[in-house]
């Protein structure tokens, strides 16, 4: 069964690029526009990996991860946080919240796929 990945980002174009790349690599993908949206979509799903932006309206990425970790089913789910260069302080905060893997934007689809496959092969 293909692994399922949730892509959380308020930019729909970025979500699309990431989704396309992941789908082409053989993952099942569904998207969420922000932390709140993502949390609501987690229930009743089996998500193997989450890729999330940090800065988002309604609920930012770090709060989302904190909330997600409270759900028994997602306590150990790997998360890749997407960040820009100048968010180093956020990174420490995010890692404490349970998001260990960080990727700096912009990235090439290949780089992203490589990072994803380190955590979860299709």
């Amino acid at each position: 069964m293909a692994k399922t990945i949730m892509v959380v980002d308020d930019s729909s174009s970025l979500r699309q690029v990431v989704s396309l790349a992941l789908k082409s690599a053989g993952y099942d993908v569904f998207e969420a526009a922000d932390g709140k949206d993502a949390l609501s979509k987690l229930t009743g799903q089996k998500v193997h990996l989450v890729i999330s932006d940090v800065n988002m309206p309604n609920m930012d990425g770090i709060t989302f991860v904190k909330e997600m970790r409270k759900l028994a089913a997602y306590k150990f789910t790997p998360v890749i946080m997407l960040t820009t260069e100048n968010q180093e302080s956020k990174k420490a905060e995010g890692q404490a919240a349970g998001a260990k893997a960080w990727m700096v934007k912009p990235f090439k689809p290949d780089q992203m796929l490589m990072a994803v496959s380190k955590l979860c092969l299709p």
Binding site: F76, P78, Q95, G98, A99, K100, A101, S117, L119, L121
Partner: peptide, 18 residues
């Protein structure tokens, strides 16, 4: 802490095999 960070040790071994 790796498990709590969402990291599965075996996932790295799987990737290593590639």
């Amino acid at each position: 802490d790796v498990l709590r960070g969402g990291m599965d040790p075996l996932s790295f071994l799987r990737y290593l095999r590639t």
